[in-house]
């Protein structure tokens, strides 16, 4: 008799709705999380431009790209290390050689102008000088990178 009374008092909360909610939250975070933006250095403060259009998902997925983060001193941030111009030029040259090797392995060739299909995503700090950014652009051009996406924050 006393055993049956204790089983009546036992509280068993229904955890199923809680589990449902937690799974929904997990699904949400799984969908919105984006590991591919690891190359985008968040310490770079981009300039603001109203007409900069967002990159489309198709563009992101299909195109090979090289991300160049430029800090406020005009140095290239590559793998988290700030590189002065002469080192940055070497890095760009090395990346260009890698792209050319990949193209060769895939049986492809650069276009008629010697241009590589890789798009250079230029994320320069708003306080960087135009001169330093332009030096990197010319280094890219001389190594066959002609397609550029200059990043800016959306807004007025």
């Amino acid at each position: 008799m006393s055993a049956s009374m204790s089983s009546e008092v036992k509280a068993e909360p229904n955890l199923t709705p809680l589990l449902d909610v937690v799974f929904q939250l997990i699904t949400f975070f799984m969908l919105v999380i984006n590991f591919s933006q690891d190359n985008f250095d968040q310490s770079v403060r981009l300039p603001v431009a109203g007409t900069a259009r967002p990159a489309e998902e198709g563009e992101k997925a299909n195109e090979d790209h090289l991300v160049l983060n430029v800090d406020r001193d005009g140095k290239l941030l590559f793998n988290g290390v700030a590189q002065p111009l002469h080192t940055a030029i070497e890095t760009i040259k090395r990346e260009s050689q890698l792209v050319k090797l990949n193209l060769k392995a895939a049986g492809l060739k650069p276009d008629a102008n010697g241009g590589l299909p890789t798009m250079v995503i230029l994320r320069a700090d708003k306080d960087a000088s135009c001169s330093s950014v332009y030096s990197l652009i010319t280094a890219c051009q001389s190594n066959g990178f002609f397609k550029f996406a200059m990043k800016a924050m959306n807004g007025q």
Binding site: A49, T51, P54, G115, F146, K147, A149, A152, M153
Partner: peptide, 11 residues
Amino acid sequence: SEGQFIMNLLP
């Protein structure tokens, strides 16, 4: 939210 200006800059 980042936007971009896409350009073809020949040498």
